[in-house]
Structure formats: C-alpha cells, structure tokens
Design a protein around this nucleic acid. Structure first.
Lengths: 340, 340
DNA sequence: GTGATGACCCAAAACGTGGTGGGGGATGGG
DNA sequence: CCCATCCCCCACCACGTTTTGGGTCATCAC
C-alpha cells in the first residue's frame, strides 16, 4: 500500500510538498506539482483515511441513527421504506459533499449516544424519527456535538426538520370540507408520538375553525397499524349519524379502515370517504387507490443533511427548525358529497 | 475530550497499561485494572476511532455499495425496498459484531473501487446487485481486498451469495404444471442481467424436462418495468393458442401483465394465471393478491455479511458461493386448470 | 545468600498524515 | 559582485492509539 512517503520519493520531493499538492495549498511550483500528481497516479496513491482523520480531527463522515425497530425482521408494517427515502435524501447530499454516511446502532441510552460523539467516528449525527423525548434531547444538546433530528424534537433550540403535520392535517379537513363533507372523523396514531399529536391538533383546529361538530365517537384511537385502523373503522361505522369521511393519520390505518368498510358492505368512496397520510408505496395499488398526504421524505433527509453540514462546518445552523409541507395526492378514496 | 493519557495519569499508570486493560489483555494486576476502569468511567473516556484504526490497520467498518439507481429520485419502480431488506440483514450481523456499516457511493469505475480499498476507510465491501461484469470482478479480485457480491458474480472463485434463480424458476414451472397448466409463457427481464438469464434458463430447463412445448411467442422480452410487463402480456394474449399461465420474472412485470389481462377483459386467475418473482411489499395488496416467489433478501444480506466477516478475520471464506432458495407464496393469481 | 523465574508495569517507537518554522536557491536590483 | 527578496521545499512535531522490548520487584529453589 503506497504511502505519502512513497509518493514523495518517487516525485523527488518531501512529504510535506506532497501534502500541499494534495490539499491544494499554494507555494508549490506548477512543474513540481505536476510531478507529484504524476507520482500519485503511477503509484495509485490514496491518502489513508484514518491518518487523515486523526490529524485533521474530523472524520468526513456522518452517522445516521435509525430506530431499533428497523432491525426487526420483516413485519406487516415495513417502515423500512420510510428510512430508505430519508436516508437517500441525506446520502445524496453528503455524497455530493464528499462525506461518508455510516449507519449507527441505536441502543437508546444517553451514554451510548455520548460514546459515539466521544470516539469521534463521525462529525455529526442524524437522528431519524426517534422520539427521543425532550429530556434526552436537552442532554444531547448540552454535549455540544453537531446533530439534527428528523421529526419533532419537542424542544426549542434543537435543530430539527419535520413534515408539517399540523398544517397538513388542517388541509385534509379543508379539502374534505370543500368536497361537501361535514361529518368528519379521525383515526389517531399512538399518543406518545409527537407526529400523532401534531396531526390530531391540526385536525381539531380545522374542525373548530370551520365550525363543525366533533362527537366524541368521531375521535378514535389507533396505533398506526393496519389492524387498529380496521378496528377503529368498525367502531365508527356503528355511530349515528355515521361520518361521511374519515381521516386516518397514516396510510396503514387507512388501508385497514377501507377493509373494514368493505367488510361491512360499504362502498368507498361513494358511501364513505377515506384520507390517509404518508403515501406509502402501496397506496396507489390498493383498491380503490388511496387519497393521501404525501410526506416529503426525500426532501426531509436532504434538508436535514444540509443543516447538519452547516452545523459541522460553521458551528451553527442558520435556522433551528424547518417544516416541510406535505402534498395532497388525490386518488379515488374521496368522493364529493352533496350534504342532505 | 479525554485521551488515554488523561486516563493513565488519573489512574497513576502508563498509557500502555490502560491500553492493556481496555483490550482485555493479560498481565495487569486486578487491582490496577479496577483503578484504570474507574478512571475511564470518571473521565467518560472512549478510545479515539481514527487513532485506533490507524494503529491497528483496520477500521472495524465495512462498506456497502448500492447501485447508483438508488440515488435517483422517487421513481415508479422503487428498488429501495430491495436494498433496505438486504442492508438490514447485513447491518444486524455487523452491529452484532461491533462493526460499523457505511454506505458507499457507486461511481462504477475500477479506479474508484480501488480507491476505496486503498484509503482503508473500511475493512471490506459488500456489492449489492451491481452486475459488475466478470472483467471488473476479476480485476477487483486481483486486488486481494475482502469483498462479497450479492447476486451472481458470473465468475468462479469470487465469493458471492445469490438467490437460487435457476432452481426457483424450475419450481414455478413445476407448480404451474401441478396445477394443470400445460401452455406456460414467460416474460423475461433485461438480458444483460444475470438474474434474468438465470431465471430464464431455469424456466427453459423445466419446460423441456416436463416435455412441454414452448412456441417462440411464449418467450417474451421485458425489462423489469411494469409497463414492459403490460406490453408483453398484450402480445401474449394475441397468440393462438393463448397460454393458460404466465411467469413474469419479477413482480413489477407481473403487475403490468395482470393489468393488461384485465384491460383485455380477462379474469385473473380464472382465464389466465400469473406468477411473479420477488414478493415486493405491494404484492399482497394488488387485485387479486399476487402469487410469487419470495426472495430471501434479509437472509441474503445476513449471509453475505457472515462471509465477508469471515474473509476479513480469517483471510478467506469457507465457501465461495452460497445460493439461497426462494419460497413460493401462494396467493390468488394462479387457478387450477383442467386441461381440455 | 544468590541466581532464576514470573508478574507487572513503563518508555518509546510506530501507524500515515497535516502543519509550522526555518533554510536554501534563484532572481533581480544596486 | 553582493545582498535582499521571494519562492519553494525540507525537517520535525503532533494527532491518540497499540505494541514491543525491556526493566523492576518479589518470590522461590538451591
């Protein structure tokens, strides 16, 4: 394996001159520079990664921490897609900027995260969808290590990028309203998830803003799983009057809800409309194709990467919270309704 | 940031003793060991990653190279799922063995791959589904750097792990035959892909083995895209006699094929049966749910990781080629047929 | 009492790179 | 012809760790 010393010898110069050439620093005669470059090519020299990192005190690499649920075997609820898209966005950005992306384990303890910081294997960390809790977030923040959270950090002064759960839910209600719906129900996600809470809050705000009524039974719990969506829909179908539209705060539950409606002999969307959230890959393939809010996952990753890079290079991000809009994808699970 | 020197000073020993303790080497008094450990805890010391890698001449990290198609924006053919599953398998294995997984760019040139080797950022590389070609593979092999290919390496003596495309295709034909089908057609993938060729070869072998006929028109080209499957099916439907079953060598094309059949007013599976390959996430959700061969993606990744680890630690793999079986997932696109 | 034997521990030399201070050679002006 | 000036280039240290070749002390057998 060729070292910088070999290159120097071959080019007839000293190591430092080679270093200067490689790092594009001034003070090297063009001819010498060319000779060095030639030697580099001939020897197929590439700077040793560890040595450079050790000396420069930076790794030119960032870590991505994904929830440990990622590690679970193939399940009915493959969240893999979610991370893939986000990571792709971040990966493309970092590749562009000559930084490596390494997948980091998620042990979930503060000490573990701290150890990642301390060993300096990476220059910064991207937390994807971890729901760290504000206490953990604060402690991490106090370490002074660059990190960005994808999702709601639940804490000010922590840089995070999130989809606009609140506003998007408002838009769902407005859309349904504009289609003539007045009795609109919601199937919620798990309460501990900030994303769920934000979506519910946006929904409630829009309902109130439009002066609609929300009977208690229209506000159904769920846990993001298909099965929970199915169960929630069954309960909704027994309420009188029945809602004409249902907003399931993720696509999985929307799929379950549609199944429940069909099982009950109801036609979607003619007899009951359904809107989901996420736009997972199967959304266009279910029957009927699902109308949903598409999460800008790729952009989430890219934007988070940009912010992290900013923190790494300049010490701080220009903005501490970025919220990206979701876009409504109209397919076939919502019908216009002439209110009786 | 605490260094090993700080720990040594606090524990009142030399650096080498600290190092011995941290690496579980003998020759240090239990009492001293305890004192060192205490100092480590108090100072929250974690060995610097770069320094350790530099000295040890290994990074405790492996690279994963995914096709550059991974980098493309959200497309109609999201292969992301494919890599996700494979990477999960590999990731879990490496995490278990305290190695980091870093995503590597795919520039596609030999010089680039070589440079990854030379900079020693990783101890080994996993090539996912790259169809490197046997020339590239040979050249990489000659570098003597640990790497494993997921997919058919197309070259002996190169360690690779692949799904049993040949045998699985035979099983598809046998299955169809056992259901009473005698006129079986195939929709192929792109010819340059070894996976396509293997699947086609297995298909042909089984057809011949069973003494079935294969009119030229039953052997349709395709390119793995939904659209190409659709087109191929249209052509198939015009042949006389029409096939009673169609084997599309991936699920995307199977979906296209089903769409074409439905567009032509044919019922799947009653009038024509379809089998796919992959078991992509949407397979159970299309209408009707797709019968297909499930690729053991997770296991592919885990097995490749195991082999790579073996090469890294012991210099060579115990076996140079592992072939994993696909499993038939029976859903609703194949009907039993009483041959007229 | 003395030499041999272990058990522990230390100092110093790597690993390959980046940066810094200073030295040497060429060039041009006096 | 000499000196000042400016480029270039070199030797050397530092980065934080692992490893190697001892060195010191107590113990033990003779």
């Amino acid at each position: 394996m060729a070292t910088i010393y070999d290159v120097a010898k071959r080019a007839g110069v000293s190591r430092s001159t080679v270093s200067r050439v490689l790092n594009n620093q001034p003070g090297v005669h063009p001819e010498t520079r060319e000779r060095v470059l030639a030697a580099v090519r001939e020897l197929n020299y590439h700077p040793n990664f560890a040595a450079r990192a050790l000396k420069r005190q930076r790794a030119d690499a960032v870590g991505v921490i994904i929830p440990s649920s990622f590690r679970e075997p193939r399940s009915d609820e493959p969240r893999g897609y979610y991370f893939t898209e986000i990571i792709r966005g971040a990966y493309n950005y970092f590749t562009e900027h000559r930084m490596a992306v390494t997948l980091l384990d998620d042990e979930g303890t503060f000490e573990f995260y701290q150890s990642i910081f301390e060993r300096r294997q990476v220059d910064g960390i991207l937390f994807i969808d971890l729901e760290l809790g504000s206490d953990m977030t604060r402690r991490l923040k106090s370490l002074g290590f660059p990190f960005v959270i994808i999702g709601n950090a639940g804490e000010p002064d922590v840089v995070c990028v999130d989809v606009d759960n609140y506003g998007s839910s408002q838009r769902v209600v407005q859309y349904l309203y504009s289609q003539g719906h007045r009795r609109i129900a919601i199937i919620n996600g798990p309460e501990r998830r900030l994303a769920s809470r934000d979506r519910r809050a946006g929904f409630l705000a829009a309902i109130e803003h439009l002066g609609l009524e929300l009977p208690e039974e229209y506000d159904q719990p769920g846990d993001f799983s298909e099965r929970s969506g199915q169960k929630a829909m069954r309960r909704l179908l027994q309420t009188v009057p029945r809602p004409t539209a249902v907003y399931a705060v993720n696509d999985r539950m929307a799929i379950g809800a549609i199944r429940a409606a069909r099982d009950a002999g109801l036609n979607v969307p003619d007899e009951i409309s359904v809107v989901g959230f996420d736009d997972i890959p199967v959304a266009p393939y279910i029957n009927p194709p699902l109308t949903t809010m598409r999460q800008p996952l790729y952009e989430l990753g890219a934007e988070a990467a940009r912010l992290l890079h900013e923190i790494i290079t300049s010490g701080a991000a220009s903005v501490s919270r970025v919220v990206l809009p979701a876009t409504l994808i109209e397919r076939n699970t919502v019908a216009a309704r002439i209110e009786p």
